[in-house]
Design a protein around this nucleic acid. Structure first.
Lengths: 188, 188
DNA sequence: TTCCTTTTTTGACAATTGTCAAAAGAAAGA
DNA sequence: TCTTTCTTTTGACAATTGTCAAAAAAGGAA
């Protein structure tokens, strides 16, 4: 839980009371490799903090292919965002790629905490904003960079992904075919 | 200002006091076509609500080309998000594509309101979340759909864009060349 | 209207990326 | 260790998209 406290304080420090209330609402979750935190068709009711391990979010597109659109690593917040926020079933699957340890909080508990602790809601607003900025950067790369440039950017900003994730999933994340990524990689 | 109040209430109703405080902090801004709300290199200090008109956000990439990455229409919230949140100079230009009427609030004023009105901060958190979901959908389209599919999706979800925006800017927004978009359009 | 500017379309060709199939390599279990 | 399975690479070819240049069309101003 220290990792979460440390992570939080980098976004926005919260009061001792808020932290205590939050701690009480958290559940520790240990999940072995290749299991599912969220499956398509269900409403995702939990927001997680990933203490140890590695996950991916993916969905099955119309051709029956798995489409990976994010990876989660240590100190990331994890949820099926659309489903968690809208309270509707999502198309997303969240799968552990390694044995993972997470802390989870339910939607209801989180919103109760928001009512009681203004600073907790501020924290979440600020975290959301930072995640928005990251998403925006990713969109811009996707829109205006070639496959090679996107791969090189990934090498620079997130080299750990390359060491922990199979190539096919990285290719999907970059929006290119596995064969193309393999060729790009051999020519760098 | 009615448009803003109506828009807000669709996200999250706020108290009368919060609305009054917010109203007082807002400045009406009228901007003729082809002027700039934000220019690259500056810190964007305002969050806007677009009452009437139409804008785009773009930046100049390394090749000297203008890269459009969003459009704003009536009832949209507008800012140079990265710059407004991080308080750092951004690379973004925000330009009016039509004569436009907006309501603006400064970063400082907004944050003061957050301190005084918890429900206003909640409102903004909720709006942020909805904008995050939209961005996520756009990223997914960019990652896994062909140019033609992205154009058809735009036709379905935002046909008004096609009527109000020059083709070159739409092509840029879709991440394709103007020539390709022109050809796609002639074949639909 | 007429001229001038901007936007859109078209053609020819090149570059990038995808698809399918097979081979090579690496990892995991018996 | 030896299989078996999963992952990555390679080849051949096709489809998509981009680039450059020029023509056509549309829009604005005098």
């Amino acid at each position: 839980m220290n990792a979460l406290h440390h992570c939080i304080s980098q976004y926005h420090p919260i009061s001792v009371e808020a932290w205590e209330a939050l701690s009480k609402a958290l559940t520790r979750v240990e999940v072995p490799k290749n299991s599912f935190l969220v499956k398509e068709g269900m409403v995702c009711n939990k927001l997680y903090f990933l203490e140890q391990g590695c996950l991916r979010g993916y969905y099955n597109n119309l051709d029956g292919k798995e489409v990976t659109y994010w990876f989660g690593f240590e100190n990331n917040f994890i949820t099926s965002f659309y489903s968690f926020i809208s309270r509707k079933p999502g198309i997303e699957n969240i799968q552990t790629l390694e044995d993972s340890t997470l802390w989870g909080i339910s939607f209801e508990a989180l919103n109760q905490l928001f009512d009681q602790h203004h600073d907790l809601e501020r924290l979440v607003r600020i975290i959301n904003e930072q995640y928005y900025i990251r998403l925006e950067e990713r969109l811009m790369a996707m829109q205006f960079k070639t496959a090679r440039e996107r791969y090189e950017q990934l090498l620079e900003t997130s080299p750990h992904i390359l060491q922990r994730i199979p190539l096919g999933q990285i290719a999907s994340y970059l929006g290119i075919s596995q064969e193309t990524l393999s060729r790009i990689r051999s020519q760098v």
